[in-house]
Design a protein around this nucleic acid. Structure first.
Lengths: 132, 132
DNA sequence: ATCAATTGCGTTATGCTATAACGTGTGCAA
DNA sequence: TTGCACACGTTATAGCATAACGCAATTGAT
């Protein structure tokens, strides 16, 4: 799925995420868009749903937050599984694709006759800058 | 970390999780323990914190739920990274350990000078029984 | 023995995350 | 023009998690 023209709300939400240093919660996004007329969580969640569908935004399950995809222009859905390293100190996120990891995990699920729909890999810890 | 003698609340929560067919949310656990005197979410969350620390319970980040470790007696923390396949239809969870996946992921984070603390791998999809 | 520190527990209140359900307007195709 | 799909706005509610207070029991050092 490639991203079609974004609607106003979708563009606003995406813009906030792109300009952010790290992942943001839906409610943080809402607060940043109050001046643009946003009033309710659903306005954010609906936009996020679409952006996730288009593959231009990722959801970080372990911290209930959202981040713009690190590969602008490409469709992240085509990269296979995405892994994230999330710094618990500064919030920075590093994105990562590894076909060998995909292969092992998908081999395993196939052996279990399990049909995968959506896979999450999130590594929380401390980034180089914060390790000092 | 091995599990010391559990307190009454911890034992009650663990018991509910062990007897459950699949993962449970904290509030579902609370409801199941009302007859035993549980009244507030914190009673559950505090017990869960300890059970997670002892490695006898896992938290499934992507569905905000908790499940008893599939390897009774062992300390799951010693197995390295744990991956879960979660059936979105019936809720069943399959637990999985793979050193090759560990190795790839840990190799990558090291190359980024990232210091991992806690890693989550969760595959949501459909199990064999539900695929029919 | 006594004191301090730790740990678990109970309670009330609150905050954060996410969705249900309703109605409106717009564009487009049959 | 009618019907459908989609985005949007609003109110309300559901679901997940923790803050902050105080009490009781345990432990271990002095």
């Amino acid at each position: 799925m490639n991203a079609p023209q974004l609607t106003r709300n979708q563009a606003l939400v995406f813009d906030v995420l792109e300009k952010a240093e790290g992942p943001l919660s839906a409610y943080t996004i809402l607060d940043k868009l109050r001046d643009q007329g946003f009033r309710a969580p659903l306005q954010v969640y609906r936009a996020l749903d679409k952006l996730l569908e288009y593959g231009v935004v990722h959801r970080l399950e372990s911290i209930n937050s959202f981040v713009a995809c690190a590969h602008p222009g490409e469709d992240c859905h085509s990269h296979g599984i995405v892994a994230f390293a999330i710094c618990e100190s500064c919030g920075q996120v590093i994105e990562f694709h590894d076909h060998e990891v995909d292969h092992r995990l998908m081999g395993w699920v196939r052996s279990q006759k399990f049909k995968p729909a959506k896979t999450t890999i999130e590594i929380r810890g401390t980034c180089e800058a914060c390790a000092a």
